[in-house]
């Protein structure tokens, strides 16, 4: 079965890289590059895994994550968070918001792939 991943990220090159890696592994990939309506998109597309950037135009990844967790429809979806801000405080904020997995950019491709595989509910 092919899982469904939604990538919410604003850097076009990073979107392209993640899409490539996941597609090659057989995943179905949707992308979205704006923070403002990200919650609606997650609700609409109901992906198996969300990959979420922290610094998004319009809204921060932490706020989006909190909203997802507050909504019963999306509270269970696994979220892999990627951030380019490498401070320990960021990890704390993410964990408090209910992140499933937290990774710092730059990442290795296999790492992302492993993380997504591990997050998919069996």
């Amino acid at each position: 079965m092919a899982g469904h991943v939604l990538v919410i990220e604003d850097e076009p090159n990073i979107i392209e890289a993640i899409s490539f890696i996941l597609s090659r592994d057989g995943w179905r990939v949707d992308t979205h590059s704006n923070g403002v309506d990200a919650v609606d998109v997650v609700r609409a597309k109901a992906p198996d895994v969300v990959i979420l950037d922290v610094m998004l135009p319009g809204r921060s990844g932490y706020d989006i994550l909190r909203d997802l967790r507050d909504d019963p429809a999306t509270s269970a979806v696994p979220v892999l968070m990627l951030t380019a801000r490498g401070q320990s405080r960021d990890r704390e904020l993410a964990e408090r918001a209910g992140v499933s997995r937290f990774m710092t950019k730059p990442f290795s491709n296999s790492e992302v792939l492993d993380a997504v595989r591990a997050l998919i509910p069996t």
């Binding site: 850097e11 890289a17 610094m55 801000r85 490498g86 710092t104 950019k105 990442f107 290795s108």
Partner: peptide, 14 residues
């Protein structure tokens, strides 16, 4: 950190 890591992410991934 953000400004440096973002391009590095693309470079590493590709």
């Amino acid at each position: 950190s953000h400004e440096l890591r973002t391009p590095m992410t693309s470079i590493r991934a590709f």
